[in-house]
Amino acid sequence: MTGGGVTGGGVKVWVLHLALLAVLFSAQFWLSPYHATNLVRIMVLAVFAMGYNLAFGYTGLLSLGHALLLAAGMYAAGLPAQLWGWSAGPAFIAGVAGGGLMAAAVGLLALRTAGVSFMIVTLMFAQAGFLTLLYFAPITGGDDGFALANASRRIFGFDLSADTPRFLAAFVIFALGLLASLALVRSPFGRSMVAMRENEERSRMLGYNPFMVKLAALACSGLYAGAAGAAYALLFGYAGASFATIQYSILPMLYVLLGGAGTTLGPFLGALVMFALIEAASGLTSAYFFLVGAALVALVLFAPKGILGTIRERWVRWLP
């Protein structure tokens, strides 16, 4: 695991993050529509991964159930839109809240465990959630899911199914998420999260309540996952139970580990590289998942701290 780098750097850190946001914002003008749409997907996935990073990378909570939080956001936004015709703004807020509440509920129970047991308990809650989506198929659409009506995909008069508003919406969510996570990990609370990861016993002696810190971190993580799920439903017009399967619990973990656990920019970089890798590999071979698997093994062997973790360790010590 990575240590340090949480507070140093000062101005340089903010300049780096704002520069990345500026480049991403401008990307809509110089990328082809195809690649711009993919960037929207990457930004949404990166929000999900940033949330995972708060739990896993900073607080040390290895969850295998984040698909449940993603799906909670997706359905908390999608169902009101579908059933009662909510527009995108309220639906998105409901989605964020849904993810956070689900994470808090899961945390109240699952945080009684730690380590591998925590991993399995979160996995089982997610599995129960997936089956629940199927069980209530008359409402949720089951495994088929449902397509959101275009009328629900509007915010402030803009149509989120059109390229430019969709890009801007995703960018705003991503930028807020990134800056919030930067501020969070540099705050005293962020340091208490890292203390949980590094040595829970010692932090208890220093006066922290480990359960409450971990619960708050997991709830924050859930807000991010909920935002990502809601954003996917509203920006791409579909909600389905496949997003609650274990595959979507593993994805953010891969992104975070690839980009660098415990780095603010790692989740985005991981999502970007992984998306590009699948895109490139699927052009070469039908067994592109084999390449993904090989890449994972190579990564963990030769760059176990992820891309940014390695860069921070070797060259750029101030990287948050």
Partner: peptide, 12 residues
Amino acid sequence: VATIGLLYMIQQ
């Protein structure tokens, strides 16, 4: 992580 990678490789 490594065994997840192994899982994908064996499956594919």
